[in-house]
Simulated scan of single mutants.
Amino acid sequence: MDKSRNRRPTIIDVAEHAGVSKSTVARVLAGSSSISEDARDRVMKAVAATGYERNHLAVGMRSGRSGLLGIVIPDITNPFWAGVARGAQDRAAEHNISLLVFSSDWDAGKEARHLRALRQARVDGAIINPVADNFDDLSRFGLPFVFIGSSAERFSDVSSVGSDIAQAVRLGMEHLFSRGHTRPAFILGPRSRLARARFLRTVHDFCVERDIDPAVLAMEDAEYTVEGGKAAMERLLARRGRGYLSVFAANDLMALGAMMAVREAGLSCPEDVSILGFDGIPAGAFAWPGLTTIEKPSREIGVRAVDCLLDEIAGRPEHGRVYMPCRLIERGSLADLTATAPKMVAAGR
């Protein structure tokens, strides 16, 4: 077996192929202007022919910059967080920077390991959705960083980017009420998540403003997954008895799981049950009926986070908390109860 096929091309290979010295190759790759056009052309052709790639870690050790950023998101399988990562990757690429992506799975231990790996890789900075309250001790993190997501609001001294949850939930509540859904039920996230508290606080304030006792509204906690939403909807259906049911789910995966539970109960959406989602993931458009939802700007959050991080790396002033507005996407999962009387059905039939 030819072992040379498994050897990475070196700067010496490029120099031999171009017929120039190793130092000439180094100066060309460094962008030096004191190189003849002929030599520069030969070196670049040799780079392409040999497949040579620069060792960015070695370059970074000399220049102090690696040309790498990192991002740690909680769940890469959730399309919302995948959208955040894609936006960050696209913006980084515009600056000729590569992005390393890690998923913490909402696990503080995994988050800590990923952050150590980023430091060891000498990335120039990191974008993080913090899982733990202490976050690996901010005072000794030793790397420029920006937070994303609702959890970031726990850290008022750190620049962060996230959806405007209060604006988004209020937008959802206003839409529900405008369609006659004045006593919706809620599928919320785990009690340990700050997003749940922010969501619930906005619902509470909205109801109080309209002289509605929030305590009369049915609520179920669940994981932010399809399975969690399905199980929560099954519990809501079991306790509902007879009557029309409207549900506001705290993310689209849970909303899609709730739609599954409705179908399995022999009911129809929105004839028997209306469902409003939260996130705006693409899968909602392909559900039947299409999922009405509040869309959070996932890609834009990633883009803005990279912009903020590059400012942090450059030593420019902190941005504080950047709130990104959300918008309503109206499809078919939410009935207009002001136009037609809902069909009264037994929820458990």
Results as ranks from 00 to 15, higher is better:
residue 1 M to W: 03
residue 5 R to A: 12
residue 13 D to M: 03
residue 14 V to G: 00
residue 24 T to Q: 02
residue 25 V to M: 01
residue 30 A to R: 00
residue 30 A to V: 06
residue 32 S to V: 01
residue 45 K to S: 09
residue 46 A to D: 03
residue 47 V to E: 02
residue 49 A to T: 06
residue 50 T to R: 09
residue 51 G to T: 00
residue 57 L to N: 04
residue 57 L to D: 03
residue 63 S to I: 03
residue 71 I to A: 11
residue 76 I to W: 13
residue 77 T to Y: 15
residue 77 T to M: 15
residue 79 P to L: 13
residue 84 V to I: 14
residue 88 A to V: 15
residue 90 D to S: 10
residue 95 H to S: 12
residue 99 L to D: 07
residue 113 R to K: 08
residue 115 L to Y: 10
residue 117 A to Y: 04
residue 121 A to D: 12
residue 123 V to P: 07
residue 125 G to V: 15
residue 127 I to A: 13
residue 129 N to C: 06
residue 135 F to T: 14
residue 137 D to A: 15
residue 142 G to W: 12
residue 145 F to W: 07
residue 149 G to Y: 12
residue 150 S to K: 10
residue 155 F to P: 06
residue 164 D to Y: 08
residue 170 R to L: 14
residue 185 A to W: 10
residue 189 G to L: 08
residue 197 A to F: 04
residue 199 F to M: 10
residue 206 F to I: 13
residue 206 F to V: 13
residue 207 C to Y: 09
residue 212 I to A: 07
residue 213 D to H: 07
residue 213 D to V: 14
residue 217 L to H: 09
residue 218 A to F: 01
residue 219 M to N: 05
residue 220 E to P: 01
residue 221 D to N: 04
residue 221 D to M: 07
residue 222 A to W: 00
residue 226 V to L: 14
residue 237 L to T: 08
residue 238 A to T: 11
residue 240 R to P: 02
residue 242 R to N: 10
residue 244 Y to M: 14
residue 246 S to G: 15
residue 247 V to K: 02
residue 254 M to Y: 01
residue 256 L to E: 05
residue 257 G to N: 04
residue 262 V to E: 03
residue 263 R to K: 13
residue 283 A to C: 07
residue 283 A to F: 08
residue 286 F to K: 13
residue 288 W to F: 10
residue 289 P to I: 03
residue 292 T to F: 00
residue 293 T to D: 00
residue 293 T to A: 02
residue 303 V to K: 01
residue 306 V to P: 05
residue 308 C to Q: 11
residue 312 E to P: 10
residue 317 P to Q: 01
residue 319 H to A: 07
residue 321 R to E: 01
residue 323 Y to K: 11
residue 323 Y to E: 08
residue 328 L to I: 02
residue 331 R to L: 11
residue 332 G to T: 01
residue 341 A to C: 04
residue 345 V to K: 04
residue 347 A to L: 00
